[in-house]
Amino acid sequence: MSTIRIALPLLAAATLLGGCTATQVTPLQASADQMCIEENPKVQVSDFVHVLQEGFARHGIQTQLHSKIPRADCPYVVTYTARRSWDMAPYLSTAEITILGPRRQTLAKARYHLRGKGGLSLMKWQGTKSKIDPVIDELLASTQLSSTAPPAAQPHSTAEPRQSLDQRVRDLQQQKLGYEDYQRAYRQLLLEHQGGQ
């Protein structure tokens, strides 16, 4: 009986400290290489849009931020929500990214969520980029892009490094790592890529 009393608190602590991140991703299959991000004034995570734009650019998709988007001007639209929780300081606890097509149909969706608002895990105070970059990569890594610009407008010299980074991200995703292990490997991959440029 005493063994059970000791084991239960240890099990509860282990649950709180590990495995607190949940992600659900329906990857984007095909898209144009330009999208509009529909501004969400309710989101109070100050760097969320910047992380979103950087993440999409890393996969060859240029984005523009709009408060109102005429359908004819922007066939592909990205919407987002992000919420913070508080534990001695505010931190990102939930986010959702949705990509809509020309008929405003849902093409892809990604959700990031800290179970139990992160519990006792110190990972919950990580920055927006550390939390959302792996989600964006899973969302966009296998996307087939069609260009919206004339071929001459696309710089030829940058195509090869981006392609090799995309390929390395795909290879990393094939390993089916846990979220935290993927984050560490992904950060290392980015450092190696930047060092090689």
Rank of each mutant, 00 (worst) to 15 (best):
E54T: 11
N40C: 08
L65D: 00
L114A: 09
G116I: 09
L52W: 09
A89I: 06
S2E: 11
G127K: 03
A153L: 12
A32Q: 11
L189S: 03
T21I: 15
A57K: 15
V43S: 02
P155S: 07
A141N: 01
R187K: 11
T15Y: 15
A152H: 06
Y186S: 02
T143S: 13
G127E: 08
T106G: 00
R111P: 05
L17Q: 12
I61S: 05
Q53R: 15
D33G: 00
L120P: 07
S164W: 08
E160F: 03
R71P: 05
R58S: 07
Q144W: 01
D171T: 14
P90V: 04
A30I: 00
Q183G: 03
V25K: 02
E138V: 01
L28H: 04
V43A: 07
K124A: 05
R184I: 13
D137M: 04
A149H: 10
G178P: 07
L165F: 15
P41V: 09
V77M: 03
I37H: 03
S31H: 02
K117C: 08
D133A: 06
K68T: 13
L122R: 00
L92R: 00
G195C: 06
Q154P: 00
E39H: 13
N40K: 02
M1P: 10
L100K: 13
R170A: 11
L172A: 06
Y91T: 04
T106R: 15
V25Y: 01
Y80M: 09
G101N: 10
G127I: 03
G118A: 12
M35A: 15
P161A: 07
A110Y: 03
Q167L: 10
E38K: 14
L145S: 08
Q175K: 15
K109G: 06
K129R: 14
C36W: 01
S46N: 08
C20R: 09
V135R: 01
E38S: 08
S2V: 12
S93Y: 05
Q174F: 09
A14Q: 09
Q44E: 08
T15E: 15
W86K: 06
P151S: 09
A149C: 10
T94A: 12
T21C: 05
R103W: 04
Q24M: 05
G101I: 08
A82F: 03
P75Q: 08
Q44F: 05
D73P: 03
R71Q: 13
S157D: 15
H113D: 05
L28R: 04
Q64G: 10
R187Q: 13
D181S: 11
A82V: 06
D166A: 14
Q163A: 14
S142P: 01
P155C: 07
K109Y: 10
V169I: 15
V49K: 03
S2Q: 13
T81K: 12
L107S: 04
V135F: 09
S85I: 01
I136N: 03
S121F: 02
P75E: 10
L191D: 13
L16S: 14
E138D: 09
G196Q: 13
Q197W: 07
N40A: 12
F48P: 01
L28V: 06
K117Y: 13
Q44H: 08
R5M: 10
